[in-house]
Design a protein around this nucleic acid. Structure first.
Lengths: 251, 251
DNA sequence: CGGCGAAGTTGATCCAGGTCAAAGTCCCGT
DNA sequence: ACGGGACTTTGACCTGGATCAACTTCGCCG
């Protein structure tokens, strides 16, 4: 199998979905091999795919899909951050994931979307009508294969997150989250790997890792007091990366 | 798309993997449409697939895969129950899922299996060498499509479980688990839908729903005291199904 | 039958993290 | 610079479930 070829990126039309350009993100507690879809396509296929798609922008808070609603669109995040969540009857919210550039939304191909999704910050996405995307997929088994790998990997990621929610203490949850975000951003953008951007609110973080906003805040404060992290605007700087990685692995 | 055809079952060779016969299980808190793989194949394909496979038996406690080990086998559970879990450095264990007849293990196609798996009770499985299975898949895009749907669905299941682990109280966790098991067994076997078989131990249940064995036991006892369930050997009888469903939905 | 080990139940106590409420901080528009 | 609203931090208190430790039940084998 051909390795993800960065060379292809240069030739790709500018409006291509980011998934074709960016590798998939790693999981919370392990480094999964990124799945690039790009390598599986030749230029004319990329162009055709770009034609099928339509770019859309979403303001912060704007809703992409509503739990239980019909939705026949597949999104591929280009920029920004999307949160995927489940709304409980009592008003609480469990965020099942943050979608960063390159991630897909709506792959489940169910008539009704199983979760809500909205934009955390202003974001852009590449949209396909499901039918058209499906049809393209049907004609390109090699693309389907890549997509399948991506789906299986996302499942494994979900299962790792499951371990975290089932077993970890508050501090480990927060640290795992920070490491997770660091890995994801570095997989996408190659930004500085010590400062981790956190576009989402404390409440979002809490709803993701199964804590309350107070506990998240307290834990972050404690970590900063212990000189393990440094809280900066819109992010966190990891001061003791090896130490942090050790305490997450150990707990 | 052709609906799952039960008629095919009668003609299928006896050694076929159960996944081709049984629909996939539903998820913890919602009824996902079962994904049958059977309908996608014609007789000669079924026969070819059967040839690729090898039946194996596992005694209770026998290990199928070890976290991090190389594994180039794909299992399809035929009978029994397999537990899929992650072992934490401190010895604790988070069970990520129970595999019942029809479920796949090892689909991730990673060189190293991300989780441990062992048999809860004496079980049988249909094994494929990964390369052969992969190659068969590559020649049958329609099968890959089915498998992909199954994977996406399993991911959605994992995400629902995630919601449970992140947000639910002990009683809801236990009740959700019972409903989940009831739905899965009824999807497979069509057994009595009031008595839910529980082949796994209390400890297993606890490690699955993120509680301790004491809490599981206490909660079950309390539910029995309130005449909502009846504990029977190797299972539980649900006495107030509508009431239980309501209290689970309510958060 | 009796005795032993594994699994399950139950009780007493503890504490991590939830809850509630009060400051504090940041950002934006005027 | 000022005021207001949203977000965050912090404190005081409370509780659900963890922990630890009997005790009971069951299955199994001699």
């Amino acid at each position: 199998m051909m390795p993800p070829s960065d060379a292809l990126l240069l030739d790709a039309p500018p409006d291509l979905p980011a998934a074709l350009l960016a590798p998939q993100a790693g999981c919370m507690n392990c480094d999964l091999r990124p799945v690039s879809i790009c390598g599986a396509l030749v230029d004319e296929e990329l162009a055709e795919l770009a034609q099928l798609s339509e770019r859309r922008s979403f303001a912060a808070r704007e809703v992409l899909t509503i739990q239980g609603d019909r939705s026949d669109v597949v999104f591929n995040v280009l920029a920004g951050t999307i949160r995927l969540y489940s709304l409980l009857p009592d008003g609480r919210r469990q965020i099942v994931g943050f979608l960063l550039p390159g991630d897909f939304l709506g792959l489940s191909m169910e008539e009704r979307s199983p979760f809500c999704a909205d934009a955390v910050v202003d974001s852009r996405a590449c949209c396909f009508r499901r039918a058209g995307f499906q049809e393209f997929l049907d004609r390109k088994p090699h693309l389907l294969r890549r997509l399948h790998r991506a789906a299986v990997q996302e499942m494994t990621m979900a299962q790792h997150h499951l371990v975290l929610l089932g077993k970890a203490r508050a501090e480990v949850r927060v640290l795992s989250f920070l490491l997770h975000m660091r890995r994801r951003w570095s997989a996408i953008g190659g930004r500085s790997s010590v400062t981790v951007p956190l576009p989402m609110s404390r409440q979002d973080i809490a709803d993701y890792i199964g804590l309350t906003i107070s506990t998240v805040s307290r834990t972050l404060t404690a970590l900063e007091r212990d000189r393990r992290i440094l809280i900066v605007p819109d992010g966190v700087r990891l001061l003791d990366l090896p130490g942090i990685e050790a305490s997450v692995a150990g707990g």
